[in-house]
Design a protein around this nucleic acid. Structure first.
Lengths: 223, 223, 223, 223
DNA sequence: CATGAATGAGGATTCATTCAT
DNA sequence: AATGAATGAATCCTCATTCAT
């Protein structure tokens, strides 16, 4: 994960040495920017804010990125790369539809909890991107959503998941997971693997105590 | 609910007649602003955008509101008033902890699906508010969260809800519900009451088919 | 011609009164800008320079024009409108090809000497324009050139102009006339009508004393 | 003329070999810069543009020239040196005033058509120069103009040129010749010597067919 | 009340130039 | 001698807000 020198509040260390690898500095910029974008919003974050936090000047930023939007694209790109890797991994998971759904949810949570770039993809306003980048981002979002729905459908087909309104379930789980970034503190007591497990259980198992007698195999599925 | 004169795209009608009550005009401004704030973001929405959509001039806006932030506060206020009314109503609901939790979730969804002001409270960035207003808004958010946790705890206490990490459950449900505004279209096939029911079921019941033999009364509750 | 209130150095008077017609103010901006663009160059002229000379602030400029390029387009447009009117007038001139050529040259000189906008069209760098506007401007320039060539060809055909390399003649005359703005002072002794006549004579008649004996009806026409 | 290694688009070759004489490299910079200055304008041409075209880095440029203006001065200096040599040559031409005027015009055209530096002197904005350099350039321009007027006056005195407004004639010819660079393509069908001859004829002889009977020895000379 | 006009305070971006290696 | 990195000083433009009528 992020090394100490790339934690947002220490990212400026990457700029201490003139000869430090530029790729490292680009990373430092992205990490700092992602942090600010998520915390303050893209519009409220000025190039000066980013530069100040990195303890460099504004034009130095432009040495590494051609524009503010280019930085934003960089954040999205990192997030996307990460997400795609996870999707691939989740794709290979075997087991019942339910198991595969759980695996997918856990991967998704990992995206959200381990790197700010994942949060950027799901929480920043992609209207700030230029059409080309926006299209790509939206395609990815749709793909994530579609993949989740497929997993759920598999489960319904193999009987490990109750028949349900798959679309709504996917929205519910997406909303729940994407919001994790707004309250999860990686430094808290619960590490992210544990969180992923508990959170997945909450979503998948629900909270209600199952009615003991009455067979309950179908939940309402309006819409 | 919203009358024809207050639908965002028709809000300017409130300004057609000089004799209309100023209160109506304030409402029209707020509704239009809420719409734009949610769609474009507070920062991306200029006073001119709001004025243009209302077919009035910028200074006319300032006749009704002293500043852009004042409009934002207005949006939050309406949302808060609505939310408080719902909380009161939900408070009076009787039944088991599970039932009361369900009622609360349904009320919350109503807040999100029926008026843009509710969405403003949960989806806009309260950092844009001045400290005083921000404190109030955050107090309300905490109260909503706390109330939900109390309901869940009641259910755990009376045995209708499985022991669980109440804090995480509240976050999960909050995230799921607050995100409804980003995809729910009031004009779609599913009306909001139906949505509230189905969505509540999804959250509360989960999707997994309960294991038939093994007694399952407790879900993992790390953290 | 330009009234006292629109002379560049007095253009700011148009802004003395808040209620003055906006069209007048737009004109004042354009006249001042044209003046500076021609004198300093488009790139060297900042919006602040223009605003300062008009004794207004920079954002006030943006009240009348959406961008610096918009001002440039305005200058070109005025020049183009003027030029087209002249072309029309010259088109109606009758007489021999030589006479019609002279008339055209005089009209062209009028364009250059009476209003700075004409000079803008021929002397500013149209690369500063966006493609659409640039195309239009270039079309006009080509049309001016083509019209001049047609006039000359008419003269050659009717025997009032010696056979010559029409293309080169048009370039020579164009260069000579377009450069007038760099040295002609409207406040000097020679008024612009007189200048137009004398200058046309110089170009058309040449300066050499015709060889008395040798018939001279053809000039070299390489290329 | 320009060797293959100094053609603007190949100028970077001068930098291919570390051992090449620095003076050659200075030349390469100047030629490339002159090309860009004329094509794009001084202001629109950045040091980076020049460096990029030469396939060197910006600081390398500063190794050869202390500033952008220094490069500009270099361009002017080359042009001036060339022009002065031509003036000297034209000065030695003998014959009638008319002949000497023709010779001068041809030399001037050579300045414009053979090297970009000549065009720099007459077409770039000398306001970009610092006062000292600017004064020198303007002195040269005045001298060129003065020399042309003297030639014409000689011709008038010896009867080979018709009495005319010498100042205006000089302006007309200057404008016509200086603009050659904007349309003349050295690679076209007409070589520059031929062009010089034809163009001189056009200017000096005019285009009108002389009235056969009426003696025509004086052209209007207002101002 | 309503409106066209005007403004001060930023914010993104560019660029000539210099520094450290 | 040459380079990647860095910077200060503009410059264009936006926007919340206020004025004058």
């Amino acid at each position: 994960m992020a090394t100490s020198s790339t934690r947002p509040h220490q990212a400026h260390r990457a700029f201490a040495n003139r000869k430090r690898k530029p790729e490292l500095k680009r990373e430092a910029v992205l990490l700092t920017a992602a942090h600010l974008f998520l915390q303050e919003g893209y519009r409220r974050t000025s190039m000066e804010d980013i530069a100040d936090r990195l303890e460099i000047t504004k034009p130095a930023l432009y040495h590494y990125f051609s524009s503010k939007e280019d930085i934003l694209v960089g954040c999205y790109s990192h997030g996307i790369a990460n997400i795609l890797a996870r999707l691939d991994r989740a794709d290979k998971s075997s087991g019942s539809g339910l198991e595969r759904t759980r695996d997918f949810l856990r991967e998704w949570m990992d995206v959200i909890t381990t790197l700010e770039f994942g949060q950027c993809v799901v929480n920043l306003d992609d209207n700030e991107l230029r059409p080309a980048a926006r299209r790509e981002v939206r395609k990815l979002k749709r793909r994530m959503d579609r993949t989740l729905r497929e997993r759920i459908s598999e489960g319904v087909a193999d009987g490990t998941i109750r028949p349900c309104n798959v679309r709504l379930v996917a929205f519910a789980y997406g909303g729940a997971i994407n919001s994790i970034g707004t309250w999860y503190n990686p430094l808290g007591k619960m590490n992210h693997t544990e969180l992923a497990n508990v959170f997945t259980d909450i979503l998948v198992e629900g909270i209600s105590v199952p009615a003991p007698k009455k067979e309950r195999t179908k939940i309402s599925s309006g819409g």
